[in-house]
């Protein structure tokens, strides 16, 4: 049985965007804080810290999850992907490109989380309907209310046209 004492910082090793990285964390340290403060991966935003806003969404072993509802010690030995890992050799992914083209971000605070959700979800649902997409996006809050452009970008990158008159 793994037993980690409350008052001690324990080594945590993850594969962050393909690179092995080690830091130290108290048992109570959230993955979101571990990524930002311990590993310096600042793209993962911290919003509500109770799983509602979606800004801290990362992929753990490929699966999109809330970093603020995950303890750093729970991901020891696992793969964590953040938005820093999407672009390859300075080239954005098609999804990021579509966000750029459609102005699907304003202040950008929610964007990293939304991109990480989509990076997982679009593998499972490659041709979503607009209704399915809007349902998935309900797990993210964009306080700039830029959802229309986000929907446009995703429908574009999946080779579809938007249907809603509101978009």
């Amino acid at each position: 049985m793994t037993a980690l004492a409350a008052g001690t910082r324990h080594p945590v090793t993850i594969t962050l965007n393909g690179q092995p990285r080690t830091g130290h964390a108290h048992p109570r340290t959230l993955l979101s804080d571990f990524l930002r403060h311990e590993l310096g991966a600042h793209s993962t935003r911290v919003g509500c810290e109770h799983g509602v806003c979606g800004a801290c969404t990362v992929r753990i072993d490929g699966v999109a999850q809330r970093a603020c509802l995950t303890l750093a010690v729970q991901v020891d030995g696992r793969r964590v992907d953040t938005v820093e890992g999407l672009a390859r050799e300075g080239r954005m992914t098609a999804l990021q490109d579509a966000f750029h083209r459609h102005h699907a971000l304003q202040c950008g605070f929610c964007t990293a989380g939304i991109l990480m959700s989509l990076a997982d979800w679009l593998v499972r649902v490659p041709k979503p309907t607009e209704a399915e997409l809007r349902d998935m996006l309900s797990g993210h809050l964009c306080r700039c209310t830029g959802y229309a452009a986000i929907v446009r970008a995703v429908m574009d990158v999946t080779g579809q046209t938007t249907e809603s008159v509101h978009v």
């Binding site: 793994t2 037993a3 980690l4 048992p27 109570r28 810290e49």
Partner: peptide, 21 residues
Amino acid sequence: MKPAPFDYLRPATVADALAAL
């Protein structure tokens, strides 16, 4: 906010988990 401190146990079996509980 952040959690108050706690010890963290990750048992390898249900029997271990029950003993810890």
